[in-house]
Design a protein around this nucleic acid. Structure first.
Lengths: 337, 337
DNA sequence: ATGAAAGCGCTAACAA
DNA sequence: TTGTTAGCGCTTTCAT
């Protein structure tokens, strides 16, 4: 059997027209006689013809493909951004692919593969400042950052309004009467961790609670790091009455450590996180958190990227989304859920 | 500025050779004089030339690109498979992209985009039987299934040995003295759920415990469905002494429901899951589970796929991997962790 | 060891 | 409205 699939010319021959007419038909072009169109469509149907995306990319000089890249796929937040981005791209007839690179070296290779080798027309980079990876991001290419505003001031971004969200989380604890509030941060090299720390400080300031840097412990977003954080307070014999963990996973680690140490949550220790991942409401006790609409972030990023590619806009935008306080039993005996 | 990047001919001109020689150099071809090679490499370096993947795909008739597709990205198991697949592909100089489609219609569109439009040389399909999506999978194309053996008997697959894993999980509960063991399954349209149910039956049989189908409740892999499952037993006033949930998320839902109903785990109710996701050890109590090496599944699938593409093999293989029992406090007071 | 010519499947001008 | 001619950037013959 001849394994090669029909090309535009095979279809043309079959339909008795020129290959150009076939091209017009598959591109939904105007100026084709309805009868001719029907003829061509019949031939396409009959031969099972499908246009070759590679050849089209080649001829057009653009791929109609976008990519979403992150450190990994298993982080719920990243995956959610990607899902949102995929849906939006599909609606605009673009193909969104995703790929991950855990370290700067493979990130560099990935970007080369995607941008250097011209596989895509635009790029969404999730958490661009998680390590030195930002050094490998090409500047003069359609680009949107997710999770942090760009340091260079001509790159668009979409992220959570980290400062505000942290302020609100801390404020919630303060409003419950807490004054001894520990903070478990993400890696401080990430802007997001810094901004959330700023929001925490502002809330304390406003409540005239002195900022105590020994109450701040740096984690790495993992549950394990949240657990260690609380353990270290326990070992030092100075357990706070409340903890603001900068994400839910670390908050879960804090809950685990509290349980192991027989510290009652929320009566002895209130805990709040950020994200509202699906499992947050299943924890013991269910976790109070700042819920963000993560797919929306991916969606907005894709829109921005397409605007840039289609040159609909030239102005740099930094979109900041809000989060919503979801009160559960980790801060209040009578929390929801 | 001329935005167009240098082509193979620009490099050739610069180096004073033919474009063909440049092609030989970038492909690491033999038969180029070291001096010539150096000349070309210098020109490449100087002009910042990078080969265009699209053009190469076009000329070669293959893309050196693979895809991994699933229902979503947020499921920890799926994401883990993808990560494993990415790493393996990279080692073979292939590019692995991933994309998700939640329903059969968008799955169909995705497959058309990838295979119909010739964007990739091969496909890894995760959970092909989760709905009618398998109908849209092209048969005569390099393909590997993950999560279920193919029903048509000429497609390779990699999956967990579901029957065996379920047998072992159930056996663990039996060995602790349980005889009233409920089962919470995944969607029964998925082979994986059926096989795990089979393993459960075999273990019961072997222990001369009668299989009682009212002890089986179908879930959908979500924590919520696990919670509902236990709730329905509670409402019926016949709470089992043990539950085998076919994945960790559902097991977590069971734990939550038990907590809400003041049922002590593990003294009144033992619970075991499958997966060992990162948060499993953080639950209350930490969850006993069957740990699988998920990235390995993605890795093996990629290897198989490349073997098929390179025609290194023609025989159909169905690789079944084992899992390892990890005992924590949800089945035993003195469990590990 | 190197170069010239042809062609991958399509789109973009231009002509008829 | 339709067809003809180029050409996208590269690889693959086949010469030299």
């Amino acid at each position: 059997m001849t394994n090669s699939r029909p090309t535009i010319r095979d279809v043309a021959r079959q339909a008795g027209v020129s290959h150009q007419t076939v091209s017009r038909v598959i591109n939904g072009n105007e100026g084709v006689l309805p009868t001719t169109r029907a003829l061509v469509e019949a031939a396409i149907e009959q031969m099972g013809y499908r246009p070759n995306a590679i050849a089209r990319s080649m001829a057009r000089g653009q791929t109609r493909t976008l990519a979403c890249i992150s450190q990994n796929m298993t982080d719920y937040t990243f995956a959610s951004v990607i899902e949102g981005a995929e849906v939006e791209a599909r609606q605009h007839d673009y193909f969104m692919l995703s790929s991950s690179a855990s370290d700067p070296d493979s990130f560099r290779a990935l970007v080369d593969e995607l941008v250097g080798h011209r596989r895509v027309d635009g790029l969404i980079v999730i958490n661009p400042y998680s390590d030195e990876r930002f050094e490998y991001i090409p500047k003069n290419f359609p680009l949107v950052f997710v999770g942090a505003s760009a340091h260079e001031k001509n790159i668009c971004s979409v992220s959570l309004d980290d400062e505000k969200v942290a302020y609100e989380a801390t404020h919630h604890l303060i409003s419950l009467g807490h004054t001894s509030i520990a903070l478990v941060t993400g890696p401080m090299e990430e802007d997001c961790s810094q901004d959330r720390t700023e929001g925490y400080r502002r809330a304390l300031n406003e409540a005239k609670i002195e900022f105590d840097e020994t109450m701040v412990i740096e984690g790495d977003w993992s549950a394990t790091s949240g657990q260690s954080a609380l353990l270290s307070f326990i070992e030092q014999g100075r357990v706070p009455t409340a903890v603001f963990a900068q994400n839910d996973r670390m908050a879960m680690g804090v809950l685990r450590a509290a349980r192991d140490a027989n510290i009652k949550v929320p009566s002895q220790l209130a805990v709040i996180g950020v994200d509202d991942m699906p499992l947050s409401s299943y924890f013991d006790p269910p976790l109070t958190t700042m819920r963000q609409d993560i797919p929306r972030i991916g969606q907005e990023a894709t829109r921005m990227l397409l605007d840039i590619i289609k040159k609909k806009t030239t102005d740099v935008r930094d979109l900041k989304l809000s989060a919503q306080l979801v009160i559960r039993q980790s801060t209040s005996e009578k929390g929801g859920d």
